[in-house]
Amino acid sequence: MKIEFAPLNIPLRRRLQTAAVLQWIFSFLAMAQCCLAAFVLLLLSDWWMLALLYASWLWLDWDTPCSGGRRSHWVRTWTVWDYFRDYFPITLVKTVDLDPKQNYIFGFHPHGVLVAGAFANFCTESTGFSRLFPGLKSHLLMLPFWFRVPVFRDYIMCGGLVSSSKQSLSYLVSHPDGGNVAVIAVGGAPESLDARPGALKLQVRNRKGFIKLALKHGAQLVPVFSFGENELFDQMDNPTGSPLRTLQNRLQSVMGVAMPLFHARGVFQYSFGLMPYRTSIHTVVGKPIPVSQICSPSNEDIDRLHAVYLQSLSDLFEQHKHDYGITVDKHLTFI
């Protein structure tokens, strides 16, 4: 394989963009493991008392990820996130105003490999979420497992990440004064196994838990489609039924975390590596679907609203796909 190296005269601005994305890749793939290892080493060292003090704090703070988290405006406005945004670049597109007196569930599609668009738009202020939607606070839901990792949990909560448990979502969307946005990558980890350039398959047909909670709490549903999300990485061929896909599905069922074997470019060359391609991401926030509160929704209520949601998501995609380079013959597939 011929390696295409990056030129030496790249502007400093682009080098800083690459560095910003590199630290994000590290935080996504390895920071949790490093934090856990550091905590264990501290516990076994002469500084073990510090580890015990933190463990006491962890015990007292255990439920915070399920009760709104602990956002930090300072962390969300770090300059590094502006460089991260400009690497791709990433833009947040508003189609309508949202009432800050309501609570919302944003259904984010597609999941992609590393949900880069969801992170930039809803865990930082680099794309102007608070300016576009004044009075609303965004919270991206993440697997509960990650909030058990010492120190790492505190870092990700600063960006507005919270647990994806039912308790956490209910807490957000039952806020009496409104103003909360719970962002859910509906396809979850399994959908990341299909994330590759050109993919338009969404695992949403049997995902109805967020629909039920929207009805139970009267939260407004908002479809969100992130154009370009699947274009960031290539992935090894893993068709349904293949040995690789079978192994990935088994690991996902045991660990709760998908293991997509992705690749794109490197830091100093463009031929291979774990850095994403410089591909534009346009995250379009659609119109809210009005939801009337039903304390004990029936299966028929859930199915009815789910069908409306799928139609709204499809309409959002069809309305905007021409603006972002998707041909007229391409349509979403719900599985």
Rank of each mutant, 00 (worst) to 15 (best):
V21T: 05
V21F: 11
L22M: 09
Q23Y: 05
Q23S: 12
W24F: 15
I25P: 00
F26W: 15
F26I: 04
S27N: 09
S27G: 04
L29M: 14
L29N: 13
L29K: 15
A30V: 00
M31D: 10
A32G: 11
A32C: 04
C35D: 15
C35Q: 03
C35L: 03
C35P: 10
L36W: 07
L36E: 08
A37S: 14
A37L: 12
A38H: 09
A38N: 07
F39N: 03
V40R: 07
V40C: 04
V40W: 13
L41A: 14
L42N: 11
L44T: 03
L44F: 15
S45T: 02
S45M: 08
D46K: 08
W47Q: 06
W47Y: 14
L50H: 14
L50E: 12
L50A: 15
A51Y: 03
A51Q: 04
A51F: 05
L52R: 01
L53M: 09
Y54D: 00
Y54V: 12
A55N: 03
W57D: 04
L58M: 12
L58W: 04
L60Q: 14
L60S: 11
D61F: 02
W62N: 07
W62K: 14
W62A: 11
W62R: 15
D63N: 13
T64S: 08
T64A: 14
T64V: 13
T64W: 07
C66E: 11
G68T: 01
G69H: 02
G69N: 01
R70F: 08
R70P: 01
R70N: 14
R70L: 09
R70I: 00
S72Q: 03
S72Y: 10
H73W: 10
H73I: 05
W74L: 13
W74F: 10
V75M: 08
R76E: 05
R76L: 06
T77D: 07
T77N: 13
W78I: 07
T79I: 13
T79G: 04
V80R: 07
W81L: 07
D82M: 12
Y83F: 15
Y83D: 00
F84I: 02
F84H: 01
F84K: 02
F84M: 06
F84Q: 02
D86I: 10
D86R: 10
P89Y: 12
I90R: 01
I90W: 01
I90C: 07
T91Y: 01
T91P: 00
L92H: 01
L92C: 06
